[in-house]
Design a protein around this nucleic acid. Sequence first.
DNA 1: GTCTATATTATGATAGAC
DNA 2: GTCTATCATAATATAGAC
Lengths: 199, 199
Amino acid sequence: MGSAEPPVADGELQFIQHSAARTRVLDAALELFAVHGVSGTSLQMIADTVGITKAAVYHQFRTKNNVVLAVTERELGRLAPALQEAEAHGDESHARDALLVRVIEMAVRDRRLVRTLQFDPVVVRLLAEHEPFQRFMERMYRVLLGETGVDGRIQGAMLSGAISSAVMHPLVGDVDDDTLRAKLTDITRRLLDLPGDRR
Amino acid sequence: MGSAEPPVADGELQFIQHSAARTRVLDAALELFAVHGVSGTSLQMIADTVGITKAAVYHQFRTKNNVVLAVTERELGRLAPALQEAEAHGDESHARDALLVRVIEMAVRDRRLVRTLQFDPVVVRLLAEHEPFQRFMERMYRVLLGETGVDGRIQGAMLSGAISSAVMHPLVGDVDDDTLRAKLTDITRRLLDLPGDRR
DNA sequence: GTCTATATTATGATAGAC
DNA sequence: GTCTATCATAATATAGAC
């Protein structure tokens, strides 16, 4: 591992502070990923967006894959504090609700990024292959769903997709953030209460 | 428009019969798109999977984009009969339910393809840019949602994502088709009834 | 319908100067 | 931290023979 690059996705996911230059690259990459997908985004496009050359990007990240990793890690890591708070919370039901609110908040605010983080094939493979990501998502679902039988897992899958889709779907492109957040929170809460009133 | 290629996505979406050679290409393309995404899939990969050369693929489709178009058109077109039936149905509520069942059926059966058709950036752009696709999706949502205020659109966005996600999420990878279809139908019906019992 | 061969451009990646 | 220059490879696409 080179001296320029921080450890990538080993240990627990957390907030990671990047240098200004790296942050510019990651911001540009994320924005481009959202529009063209990861595979449809070249390092040249990223470099052009930042206003530097490819070589300068390679000074910050050894491979394109490391850019994808860093982006995914950074964005997922933004949920880490909310997750930790929820896990520390005494009341299970309140913890779930609090985390849900934070997840919806982030999804609504960063609508454009949701498709990339949840559905891009490259990111999906990353999430499946790297243990820290898996562990993080497991913790998320443990809080959001409680114990996970078949019903709970189907429910969780639907929930995650419903939230994602609700913020990125063309149907709701013109709905403002506040309205969307409110409706989404409301419907999601009811969805979680559906099968047998599990509260 | 060349003599070898059929009209692509003008007029209404419908079942389209392709030649055996074209069908082989489209099948391979769809399978590869599902794994690597559209941008992550090259014509070389498609050719290799079919067992022919790139040139042979180009004999069937003038550009890669036309392959993507044809794939999208073919798969979406498979819902056309169900949509027409539903539109012809007298009772609005029964029509909605019948279409829903067909959509879920197809989503569950072709789990691997859902991510591509619903979320791949290239396909999403296609759907947004080509009128026939837009018109088709409008008709789908008209039947599934009835009149479309803000609430209905948010609900529709959630519904589409919830179904998609429920069939493609790692959480439900080991759930068999029958179980998944049953639970999904059940939860979806309840989701549609949620805000103010709109039946 | 499929092939070989080729043109053109873009891609991920590296070396070394400033 | 950024640059110019370069490399090897892979991409989309075409021409023309069988």
